[in-house]
Design a protein around this nucleic acid. Structure first.
Length: 491
RNA sequence: CGGGGUGUAGCGCAGUUGGUUAGCGUACCUGCUUUGGGAGCAGGUGGUCGUCAGUUCGAGUCUGACCACCCCGACCA
């Protein structure tokens, strides 16, 4: 076990904090609630971006960029929207600084007050729909399928690296459609893209479903989410997609002429996935040795560590190592060769385990003599010595296998921690003892949901798309219910 | 934003009743020996003691305000 990492089973929250810092993913900055994403952490984000961007483009979307600042009045146009975000907005009020009277410091120039204050975007629906108004006249202008990669600011009271920070990075898709059906299909398509990404790239099993009215995005008619279970039994929402109806079109007066010449408001969706998913990645797979990264998102999939006694030996080993590296790279595998001589091999082994590198190759004099390499996999920590001739083939197989087996492991964990519960006492007890996902009947009212939240801190994470029709009674009120919904305490 | 806690070298910490030149471990630098699971010895560098103000002959130590971080609540992706 890593000596300097808090034990996961003793203090999960501290283990997470330690891990983010010690694996060199991110750190707190001088600005309250804002993090510095360090190169190793940012490399994961870049991989997430690359995969998602490819998937967005494959589904017909293009990228664009809209301003960081949003005129205050834009927010006020959609009532639910402004209400949802009002409490966490950062606001720009001035545009100039000047030297203080005493000449020592600088102050905000009171004469440089903005006519209209600017909100730093917590999300971009309003500024984007203000543009869409000018872009859309006819059904021929539709659909508009735009995504933007951006930072947003939500002034959070209590922050945690990746999971909740005042500023975070994300992508936000904003689409405009001629019909309600088309927009709803788009919202569903994108939640499916997210689920595909989560399961296949992040190796994170997720449950797709509808949000209850309470949990819905401010301004949306319907919100879909993917929900994942973390190792401490809490749920984490990893991506959301919203069917916005005509709410923003009406707020920004975006109408189009349809084929029959009739004027109608445009139908909208929006969907987003943030740096928070890096937190999910950490909490879903990692252990007491450190991070466990899925090969598809790891900054490098293989690390090669030379074992040597003197510079001459290092040179020989490096020659062999570089050959292996270039062979692996040709096969499309990302590789780091760590030939630094200021740390011992043992130190490097522990360090790359902490950083979650999927596969480690060790190459020493013994291997040179025998034409072998030691291969170790991060997820199971198992190692074996193989002929150097079969390295590429072996590593390729291992990478695929690790990707699949950490997904299976996470899914197995979820299965074991999903409970079908029909009695209120069991519901409360399970939450307190084990946490996890609880599938239970609900009478469909916001009032009941609110009371359950007050009494247990559990919320409806989603109403799963695939929940079967089943006659039952609400876990709280005893009123009739037709399907189970997913309850959990959440991040 | 409410309650609790913590700020001393990059990191982890000690520092007595307010008293001389602020110390230990680790990391870092140099040298030698090492290197198949976080190496050893020797020497060395590194400090506005979170910030600002106050009390005092004298403040890391006492007082106040502020800032940051951690934990628990309310709010949220």
């Amino acid at each position: 076990m890593a000596k300097f990492l808090t034990n996961r089973d003793e203090n999960y929250a501290q283990w997470y904090n330690d891990l983010v810092i010690k694996a060199d993913l991110a750190e707190n900055s001088a600005v309250r609630g804002c993090m510095v994403i360090k190169p190793y952490g940012f490399a994961i984000w870049e991989n997430i971006q690359a995969e998602l961007d490819r998937m967005f483009k494959a589904t017909g979307h293009v990228n664009a960029y809209f301003p960081l600042f949003i005129p205050k009045s834009f927010f006020a146009r959609e009532a639910a929207h402004v209400k949802g975000f009002a409490k966490e907005c950062a606001i720009v009020t001035h545009y100039r600084l000047k030297t203080d009277e005493d000449g020592k410091g600088i102050i905000v120039d009171p004469t440089a007050k903005l006519e209209e204050e600017l909100i730093i975007r917590p999300t971009s629906e309003t500024i984007i729909w203000n543009s869409y108004k000018n872009w859309i006249q006819s059904y021929r202008d539709l659909p508009i399928l735009i995504n933007q990669w951006a930072n947003v600011v939500r002034w959070e009271m209590r922050t945690r690296l990746f999971l909740r920070t005042a500023e975070f990075l994300w992508q936000e898709g904003h689409t405009a459609h001629a019909t309600s059906e088309e927009a709803q299909e788009e919202a569903e398509r994108m939640i499916n893209v997210y689920a595909d990404f989560a399961e296949n790239c992040m190796a994170l099993p997720v449950i797709k479903g509808y949000k209850s009215e309470n949990e819905r995005f401010p301004g949306a008619l319907d919100t879909y989410a993917i929900e994942a279970l973390m190792q401490d039994g809490k749920a984490l929402q990893a991506g959301t997609s919203h069917f916005l109806g005509q709410n923003f079109a009406k707020a920004f007066d975006v109408q189009f002429t349809d084929k029959t010449g009739k004027l109608d408001y445009v139908w909208a969706t929006s969907w987003g996935l943030s740096t928070r998913t890096i937190g999910a990645l950490i909490m879903a797979h990692s252990d007491n040795h450190g991070l466990v990264l899925p090969p598809r998102l790891a900054p490098f999939q293989v690390v090669i560590i030379p074992i040597f006694k003197n510079p001459e030996q290092l040179q020989k080993i490096s020659e062999a190592a570089r050959k292996i590296r270039s062979e692996l790279e040709t096969a499309g595998i990302s590789v780091k060769y760590d030939d630094k001589d200021n740390n011992t091999p043992g130190w490097k082994f522990a360090n790359y385990e902490l950083k979650g590198v999927p596969v480690r190759l060790a190459l020493g004099p013994r291997d040179l003599d025998n034409s072998t390499v030691e291969v170790a996999r991060r997820d199971t920590l198992k190692k074996e010595t193989i002929p150097v001739a079969s390295v590429t083939e072996n590593v390729k197989r291992l990478i695929k296998d690790i990707q699949v087996s950490i997904f299976r492991k996470a899914k197995e964990f979820r299965t074991q921690n999903t409970f079908y519960i029909d009695k209120w006492d069991d519901f409360v007890k399970t939450l307190d003892d084990k946490g996890g996902f609880i599938m239970a009947h609900w009478d469909g009212t916001a009032d009941t949901e609110e009371k359950i939240k007050e009494e247990t801190k559990a919320t409806i994470r989603c109403i799963p798309f695939d929940a079967p029709e089943e006659v039952g009674r609400c876990i709280y009120s005893g009123k009739p219910s037709k399907k189970r919904v997913l309850f959990a305490r959440s991040y």
